Amino acid sequence: MSDRAAAARILAPSDALTVETVRSVLHWNAHLFSFTITRPPSFRFRSGEFVMIGMPGERRPLLRAYSIASPAWAEELEFLSIKVPDGPLTSQLQRVRPGDQLFLGRKPTGTLVADALLPGRRLFLLSTGTGLAPFMSLVRDPDIYERFNQIVLVHSVRQVSDLAYRADLESHLAGDPLVQDQALLQLSYLPTVTREPFRTGGRIDTLIADGTMFRSPLTGPKHFDPATDRVMLCGSMTMIRALAAQLEAAGFAEGSNAEPGHYVIERAFVG
């Protein structure tokens, strides 16, 4: 069966999965795309959580955990994905079109949520690649601006074209119906590109070490301070493990839904 035939197959819901319809697809470049699907009326989630997305397989659905890129209030669910030519799921998923059907898990979960952090003044959202997705959910949610005075979203990628949502973030989410006013005053966007010329280069650890992370318009100390700062990490395991160790050495404690802390990672993805 061809990929298109598989995508067009009529799907049946189950106790664990609903069947949703693709609403839109945007290909950012040759290896990165985003898409939106319908949202069931009963589907509730907190901005920053992830859920299972899937397509039919030979014997059972092919499922993978995806962070939700849309905020908790949105009418549709949005996702950001890489394209893996021989990937069991993404080889098919990258070919979906509006009108195709997908499986959606009924139970979102995750730790990249505001509830897993202690109160603070500055929130740093540090991401690589598609690790940007949960942070797009958070920065489009009014709640995060009530919890933190300043929010810094860092996105590290290899190529300039990998900077998904760049125009939206550079405009401070201008036109967003709920957060444009808060984002203009409170959100800072710091994109960095490691393998092509760009105004900011270097990995996230370099931006921390040379102070770029803490430059104006950000106010406060030029380093991470557990008394005022909270951090979320999402992306490559190498980045997460290195920065988590750095934060721990600086006195930060990892948080969870059961016990909020100074920083959080998504354990389901890191292991």
Rank of each mutant, 00 (worst) to 15 (best):
I10T: 14
A209Q: 12
R267E: 13
M136I: 11
D205C: 03
G261P: 04
V264A: 15
R121W: 00
R203F: 10
T192P: 02
P197H: 12
S156M: 03
R23M: 08
G54A: 11
P119D: 05
G48F: 01
L185A: 12
P61G: 06
L218E: 01
I208L: 08
P197Y: 04
D143E: 13
G220V: 08
N149Y: 07
M232F: 04
P197M: 08
S188W: 11
L63H: 07
D100H: 14
V157H: 07
F45T: 06
S137L: 03
D210C: 01
F35H: 07
I240S: 10
R166A: 12
H27Y: 12
P13R: 09
A167P: 03
F35V: 06
P226H: 01
L185R: 15
R46M: 05
P61Q: 04
L80Q: 02
F45R: 10
N257W: 03
P134F: 05
R4Y: 12
Q246S: 14
W73N: 08
P119V: 01
S42R: 09
M52C: 07
F50R: 03
R241Q: 13
L26I: 09
I265Y: 00
G131W: 07
H223A: 15
G202D: 08
D162Y: 07
F103W: 07
T192F: 05
G87Y: 07
R203C: 03
D141P: 12
I208Y: 06
V231H: 00
R122G: 02
T36Q: 13
Q159N: 12
E196Y: 03
K83E: 11
A74T: 06
D141C: 05
D15C: 06
E75K: 13
G202T: 07
E146F: 04
P85R: 12
A30V: 07
A65H: 07
R9I: 01
K107P: 00
G99W: 06
P197R: 10
A65C: 11
P98Q: 05
Y189T: 06
T36D: 12
R60H: 10
I208F: 09
D229F: 02
T21F: 01
Y145I: 00
V113N: 09
M213D: 04
D205R: 14
R267G: 13
S256H: 04
V51N: 10
S127R: 01
S216Q: 10
R140H: 10
D229K: 00
Q92I: 14
Y189S: 04
S161D: 11
R59N: 13
L63R: 09
